[in-house]
Amino acid sequence: MKELKILLILVVVVLVGYWGIEPYAHSVMHGEVKKPDYNYSDLKTTAATTGDPAKGKELFVANCASCHGLKNDGINPGMDKNAAITSFNVVPPDLSNIAAILDHKFLAAFIKNPQQATENPKFAMPPMAQLSDEDVGHIIAYLSSVAKKNLDGKEITIEACGRCHSIKYQKIYAETPAENLKAYLGKVPPDLSVMGKAKELEYLETFINNPQNGLPGTSMPRLGLTKESTEKVVAYLDQIADPHREQRNKLGMWVIGYLVVMAGLTFAWKKKIWKNIH
C-alpha cells in the first residue's frame, strides 16, 4: 500500500510535468491554428467558373500558351524552360491537370488577379485583364475537360509544390534552379522530405490552404488547392516522412506483449522468493 502511494505521487508529478511541457507549452507557443477556408471566401470575383470548353481552348491558345504548356492536349509552351527561368526566375507550370487540383472559384479569381489570389504581390504571372468574366469561365471549362481525374497524393504534390520545393529523400527535385528561386522568393524554399515530422499535420493543412495564416509574411504564394487535394498532399507528406509507421505499430505490440508476460513471470518469482520474508 505504501509503495502504491509513492508510485501515485510519482505518476502525478510526471503527468503534471508532461502536461506542462507538451500540450500546454505547445498551445501557448503556437496559439490556435486557424481553420482552413476551402471556399476562399475572401476572394470576391464576378468571373464565371464554367462555360464552353471549345471556346476555352481557343482562348487558352491565344492568351496562355505563350508561357504555359498543356501536355494532355498536345500544346507546348511558346517559351522554352530556360527562357522562362531567365525572365521569371520560376518555371511556368504545365496546366494539364491544374483544374483537377485547384478550386475553380480560386482559379477564376487567380486568372483575373494572380497577385491578389496568391496574396503574393511579387507573383510572376501578370493579371489577365483582357479576359472577360465569360472568357475565364470558358478557359476553366476547357482546363476541366482535359484534366486527369483521381490524381494521387504524390502526383498532386509534384504538380502543386514541385516547381519550387524538392523532396530529395524521394529523389524529387524542384523544377526551378535554387538560385533563381532565391532571386524570386528571397530564399530557397525548404525541402519537403521530412516536413510531415517537422510540422503538425493540422498546421500543414492550414498553411497550404493559406500560407499567410501559418507564417505571416512568407513569400510562398497561396495555391488555392481544393480540400481533397490539400488532404492528399498532407497525407503524402506524412507518409513519406514516416514510412515505417505500420512496422512500428506492429512491432510495438509484440514488444509490449512480451514485456507484460515478463512482468508476470518476474512478479511470480518475486512472490516465491519473498514468501518467507517479513
Binding site: 509490449i256 514485456l259 507484460v260 512482468a263 518476474t266 518475486k270 522468493i273 519473498w274
Partner: peptide
C-alpha cells in the same frame, strides 16, 4: 536473490513504460 527478485519485477514494469514511449509516444 532477494533484492534482485523484486528489482527484476520493477525493471519489467519500467520497460513496459519505456517501450510504450519508444513505439507510441516518442515525440516528447
Amino acid at each position: 536473490p532477494v533484492f534482485m527478485a523484486k528489482e527484476f519485477f520493477v525493471i519489467s514494469v519500467f520497460l513496459i513504460f519505456f517501450f510504450y514511449l519508444v513505439f507510441y509516444q516518442y515525440k516528447f
